[in-house]
Design a protein around this nucleic acid. Sequence first.
DNA 1: GCAAAATCCTTTGCATACGAACAATATGGT
DNA 2: ACCATATTGTTCGTATGCAAAGGATTTTGC
Lengths: 148, 148
Amino acid sequence: MPSSKPRIDEDAGPEYRLDDQIGFLLRRGTQRHLGIFARHIPDLTPTQFAAIAKLFEMGPVSQNELGRRTAMDAATIKGVIDRLRRRELVTTRRDRVDQRRIYVELSPLGSKLFEDSEAAALVISEQTLAPLSPEDRASFVKLLKIIT
Amino acid sequence: MPSSKPRIDEDAGPEYRLDDQIGFLLRRGTQRHLGIFARHIPDLTPTQFAAIAKLFEMGPVSQNELGRRTAMDAATIKGVIDRLRRRELVTTRRDRVDQRRIYVELSPLGSKLFEDSEAAALVISEQTLAPLSPEDRASFVKLLKIIT
DNA sequence: GCAAAATCCTTTGCATACGAACAATATGGT
DNA sequence: ACCATATTGTTCGTATGCAAAGGATTTTGC
């Protein structure tokens, strides 16, 4: 009589399965999205594109403020801006009034790059959600916004 | 007559808003989860915990295989295992048959650490989903599994 | 006005992540 | 047996990400 493993846990221990955990699933989802992004916009990372998109939306803004709007801390946004500036996609200048601030502005080249990539960026979002039905897509995005 | 900005886009251009894009939301969700994780299990990163949890589930397994099961590429899992081995949470040994393979095994210390953190890990998942109603949690996890 | 607190940016250190290139080893087809 | 191919693990380079500490500047509280 093979009753080696009881179905009910003897210690009433919690059953942790990695593949069911929200953190693991978020990481995998991000990975899949990253792959789709890289195929459609190979010359920018999602973070770099986020910074450019936000600059396009907002116009010139201080570096840390841009970081806040794109969910990057001060150390991270600095690196991103440094790399974008090196490619001449953005320009920076010190604020005359508040000498601490560095204003970041999209260059014409950066503006053009955004406009040329905008359609691709929307395709990326669509493809990422493609496995879901249209109703599920909306509800998924809604729920994801809530837990953010 | 102030009709400067038409509600309907003249160029029928797509309107990209960063805050609505799935990639940006995934990144923000991951960030929030990471913060919750660090508060509950400060001495392990989510990735390190994932490796340990999978080893606990599966028993000894080769390094690359473990990487596949935890969604890490070969370069990433190597660094994770190196750091876990340095803390003596795992042990490694070469496979006698296949000389390429390195078997990774949870040490007693690593096993104990997992068992001691398992409850906290479940709390982390709960707290991450806390803003959602119980029904929404289940549906969110289900949808997230699909787009993975 | 002035000291304390807050804000802005920088730097360092650590830990993911991934692509690409590589050496060593196994496996497959013929 | 042999050779093309695949797999395993390593290394390097680049890019997030965050914590913590620090310097410079501005704002606030009194």
